[in-house]
Design a protein around this nucleic acid. Structure first.
Lengths: 183, 183
DNA sequence: ACCTGAACACCGTTCAAGT
DNA sequence: ACCTGAACACCGTTCAAGT
């Protein structure tokens, strides 16, 4: 079981791919795979071995941001009732998604394929903690799971920029309202 | 203002394009524009003059179906309270969207571009009638409009087949729950 | 007036050949 | 063991040339 040493150039390439992707992701944010490889100065094959799908690449680019969102859930739960904490946390996530388009879409586990490893796990767990607290309070519907919420957030983050600016906040309010229990 | 006569071959081509598109749209339902032109036996230019966007083409393909959905709203409102009518109608639409993927996505007016003419108009009006009846009853949130509902339905209809089969119904229930007023 | 289809400018992805 | 980049098989869209 000796830890296989990864070659230094391989590590280096991976880092450069992630950095290049981050730099290419800005406003309207298309992200052609070929463009990433070129900007990173690697062959397309290298890109694909490191990141078999665009989602895998995006998940890595946004890992730090996502970790921060995940860890912001616990403090909210300490200071507020669960319904409020949930509402605020989702609002934060939506704000974040508005500037960094495609984050949630990358995290949302696309039907067939394996739940994209740790990132999806932890963000799913954060949502579950919020939902569970709300269910214990009786303020969140018992039949809602983190999967539902992630899917709905994924929808919002796929809206194009203009539409999101106008409507995302209001739609999130409707979604939250649907997740909360009738009183 | 004399009505300009359209050439018979042009009318014919348009009809063949629509028919070809309908036949190509089946299960997993990709719809390459080139494939439509080829199947219709016309040049790509002809396709593009008749239907500048894929959405325009889809809207035409599904016009009859959409008309039927639109006209099914009124009878529901006669027989049920508005909340029930809304719920049933949305459920019908979702069922329909599950077999004919992409219908709603075609109708949802994409941010910038002009509301795709009559179809969007009438389906929007059908939703508004349901919502207005609900608002009069006090069972629908006052701040919801048909635009919101169409956007949310559009999301659902863009899920891939496997995910839709598993989750669409439940997600629709959450959405309806969000649209209804707190009691 | 309307049509055709070659042509252009892109994609994502693979894989033989190199080091 | 890892890399490169040419090559393949697609897209959507345009526009010169035809009828």
């Amino acid at each position: 079981m000796a830890e296989r040493r990864t070659r230094a150039d391989a590590l280096n390439n991976r880092a450069r791919i992630v950095r290049a992707a981050r730099e290419l992701l800005t406003p309207g944010a298309e992200l052609p795979m070929n463009a990433v490889a070129k900007a990173a100065g690697v062959g397309q094959g290298t890109l694909y071995r490191n990141f078999p799908t665009r989602e895998a690449l995006l998940a890595e680019v946004y890992r730090a941001d996502v970790d921060q969102l995940v860890s912001s859930a616990a403090p909210l739960l300490e200071r507020h009732d669960a319904a409020t904490a949930l509402r605020r946390w989702l609002s934060d996530v939506a704000d974040y998604a508005r500037v960094k388009r495609g984050v949630l879409a990358a995290l949302e586990p696309a039907s067939g394929h394996e739940l994209a490893a740790s990132a999806t796990g932890t963000i799913g767990e954060a949502i579950d903690r919020l939902l569970d607290a709300g269910k214990a309070e009786g303020t969140v519907r018992a039949d809602v799971d983190s999967q539902d919420v992630l899917t709905l957030l994924g929808f919002l983050s796929r809206m194009d920029e203009a539409e999101a600016a106008e409507r995302a906040e209001h739609l999130l309010e409707l979604i939250v309202s649907g997740v909360l229990a009738r009183s």
